[in-house]
Design a protein around this nucleic acid. Structure first.
Lengths: 199, 199
DNA sequence: CTATAAATAGGACATACGTCCTAATTTGTC
DNA sequence: GACAAATTAGGACGTATGTCCTATTTATAG
């Protein structure tokens, strides 16, 4: 119980610090200080900094999956679920304006460090990508589903980056609205296809 | 002469290393090794790591301005110039797939480090932003020029990030084509406005 | 050619950091 | 309540890094 609690607390603190300060810039002392434990205790739960990073990525993956699953409610449409994805930007806009996108900035950092966890970090992107592909497929855009997924991911990433650089604007709201409008094109296209198939 | 050469060599090496490895992850030894000078000599030209960063940002700003000026050739249209901007992604695609966008990734890192040069780093974005705003204004989209500039910047950033995460695809080409197609809407809109004004 | 300044080299130093080790404390079990 | 295992604390160690200092070499000027 207490073992899990401490471990979880460490991962939780590391998760936040890696997001806010970056992986490399966050030291053991930083995390230990946040959790209020000694460095020794720290090393009882994790043998190295890399291990904590792995744990953090695992938690982020799990939380992302949980979020996506939470959108899979009875009676929800793929369009609604994609809109949920777009609205992540709005929901987390304060943090995004301060620290950027947690997925994009972590991957970017690990890419530069040539870190072994780079591929694990990419898998968070992959999770979103395959999920979005699935949603666009359900929407009736089978052939271009993956392309649309990548497009939407890129749009989100770009908005997050620019919102980080210029946080004092209505920019984020505008872009979210535009992305929703863009989505409607494919919603309509999917419907007309479905109608065709019905006749 | 040799003084300037050494200084320039240091900045050049630091510029590349900051891009490829990140600012924090690049040590004095790394730069000194690349330039093949001693750490002592190093400190003769720069009193601190921050000073090198400032110099690198200045160089990047100057080079960017030079690039933009280079596009201001006789007989070029704003649409062509914006297309030039979009094509940066294609021109630098190899490096972008490996290290992301130099502007975006540097800003992102400095934001997390809470580094004093963060604002200087943002000014590279600002340069692109105001330049694009000007081009869209010339295109005849005065009211929405800045919005369009930010939109295009965000699209570029997003494509760079995703191309970094998934470099093995035709993704970048597709997105560049889509951005050019998107631009045509505003080219046409500008032309119709101009025609209206002429009548 | 000489004297002065610029430039370079390389070692010294303090600090921070990741990692390891051992002792102490807490928890769980019979 | 006693004993073993799990957990925590905190110091020790080596390395890397940013920074500084001084001696040596190279370039410049009168």
């Amino acid at each position: 119980m207490s073992k899990l609690a401490t471990r979880e607390k460490i991962v939780e603190a590391a998760d936040a610090l890696f997001y806010e300060q970056g992986y490399e810039h966050t030291s053991f002392a930083d995390i230990a200080k946040t959790v209020a434990i000694s460095r020794g205790n720290f090393y009882y739960h994790f043998k190295s900094k890399d291990e904590i990073l792995d744990a953090v990525i695992d938690v982020r993956l799990a939380n992302t999956q949980l979020m996506l699953d939470g959108w899979e409610v009875e009676g929800s449409s793929p369009a609604e679920r994609i809109r949920n994805f777009i609205y992540i930007l709005k929901t987390n806009q304060d943090k995004i304006k301060r620290y950027g996108c947690p997925v994009g900035t972590l991957f970017s950092e690990l890419a530069k460090l040539n870190h072994s966890a780079q591929e694990d970090s990419r898998s968070i992107f992959s999770l979103f990508r395959s999920w979005l592909t699935q949603q666009f497929t359900l929407l009736g855009c089978e052939e271009e589903a993956d392309e649309l997924a990548m497009h939407l991911l890129a749009r989100s990433q770009g908005v997050a980056t620019m919102a980080n650089a210029f946080p004092d604007e209505a920019f984020l709201d505008q872009e979210v609205a535009q992305m929703c409008a863009w989505l409607e094109i494919y919603v309509a296209r999917g419907k007309s296809k479905q109608a065709k198939r019905q006749t």
